[in-house]
């Protein structure tokens, strides 16, 4: 792996974060009627009574790190340095707590279901893609391919709703929502672990449905790879079928998909906003949803920035693994 490639990727991630941060700053400025007007009513309903404009601006500064009094570039500089140097994302209007603190409590839960969803969705798409390619034009292929097309036509949140209906309401296999059963003590006891997994299963599956959108592309790749000489030679060499399927077919079909898989990480993470609300799963997505509902702008911007940061980190880590899976990358780029 060349350091140049890594530096380029790192630079890109940092640039992306800067862009998102700038966008969030500009969005404060672009609020209808300007930030002061837009947030006046929200803040007033919190503090009660009337306040003069200076006091209001100070309060806005306190909550959002943006002081509408100052010239634009000073505002931006202060906002950016708060975010980057102090990891200060402001204070929630409603919960009167640091946005960072609020988000930190929720991150592990969202990560938990997102990582499960990714693992589930991606391994399923790879597996199904390879299997259908292996048996191209068989009944298995046409059945599975049609199922995948069908699944890709259902929004993941509807998958969630359907899962709740059949597995949680009609049958009590899983809880309908929440992240842990009531009255279960936290800790490394089996009861807690089981409850944890049970609550996470349905959200993870419905998010995972989103990640299976690559299965058909994977099938196409695998069909192409099946036509490669090295597959035929591997068969002539009398290698075991499982080895050919995984190390030859699987490995080589993933390569062209890798970027797509990496970019998909951002999509799966952000699907948490809708899925967590459907399952009332108190992760970061639900926090963002609550922020929208209560017009809690600092919290809203904070979750956006953290969502971005997490996605970028995950993509960067995935980028590091790319060299493990494709040796040629060190000469390319």
């Amino acid at each position: 792996m060349t350091p140049k490639y890594l530096l380029k990727r790192l630079g890109q991630a940092i640039l992306t974060f800067f862009v998102t941060m700038t966008v969030s700053f500009l969005l404060y400025q672009a609020m209808p009627g300007g930030p002061t007007e837009a947030m006046r009513s929200v803040i007033l309903s919190q503090s009660g009574g009337s306040v003069d404009i200076d006091r209001l601006n100070r309060m806005i500064q306190l909550y959002t790190n943006v002081n509408p009094d100052q010239p634009m570039h000073v505002q931006y500089f202060n906002y950016a340095s708060d975010v980057i140097l102090r990891q200060d994302l402001g204070t929630s209007f409603f919960k009167n707590e640091e946005v960072t603190t609020l988000i930190m409590q929720r991150i592990p839960w969202s990560m938990f279901i997102s990582v499960y969803a990714l693992a589930l969705g991606y391994s399923l798409s790879i597996f199904l893609g390879v299997m259908t390619a292996y048996r191209e034009k068989s009944r298995f292929d046409s059945t599975v391919s049609s199922l995948i097309i069908g699944l890709n036509s259902i929004p993941y949140y509807i998958v969630g709703v359907v899962l709740i209906y059949f597995l949680a309401i009609q049958n009590n296999y899983f809880p309908t929502g929440g992240r842990i059963g009531s009255g279960i003590a936290a800790g490394y006891n089996p009861e807690f672990m089981l409850s944890l997994v049970q609550h996470a299963a349905l959200p993870a599956i419905s998010m995972g449905a989103l990640a299976t959108s690559g299965a058909l592309a994977m099938r196409g790749n695998a069909i192409r790879v099946l036509g490669e000489d090295y597959i035929r030679v591997a068969q002539l060499r009398g290698l075991r079928e499982t080895r050919i399927a995984t190390q030859y077919l699987g490995h080589n079909s993933i390569l062209p998909m890798y970027t797509q898989f990496m970019i998909g990480i951002a999509g799966v993470f952000s699907s948490a906003v809708i899925v967590e609300e459907v399952f009332a799963y108190p992760g970061m997505g639900l926090l963002m949803f609550e922020a929208v509902k209560t017009q809690d702008y600092p919290l809203l911007m904070g979750t956006l920035l953290v969502f971005t940061a997490i996605s970028l980190t995950a993509i960067f880590i995935a980028d590091l693994t790319y060299t493990l899976i494709d040796p040629r990358i060190s000469v390319g780029e």
């Binding site: 890109q12 991630a13 640039l15 992306t16 862009v19 998102t20 966008v23 969030s24 969005l27 672009a30 609020m31 209808p32 837009a38 970019i263 951002a266 999509g267 993470f269 952000s270 699907s271 906003v273 809708i274 963002m288 929208v292 017009q295 702008y297 809203l300 911007m301 979750t303 956006l304 969502f307 971005t308 996605s311 970028l312 993509i315």
Partner: peptide, 23 residues
């Protein structure tokens, strides 16, 4: 292409949610 790469990695849904929540 840099712009494209930047936009491709921004989580789209949260951004859209913020924008629609504001406007």
């Amino acid at each position: 292409m840099t712009i494209t790469d930047v936009v491709i990695t921004i989580p789209g849904l949260p951004l859209i949610i913020v924008i629609t929540a504001i406007f």
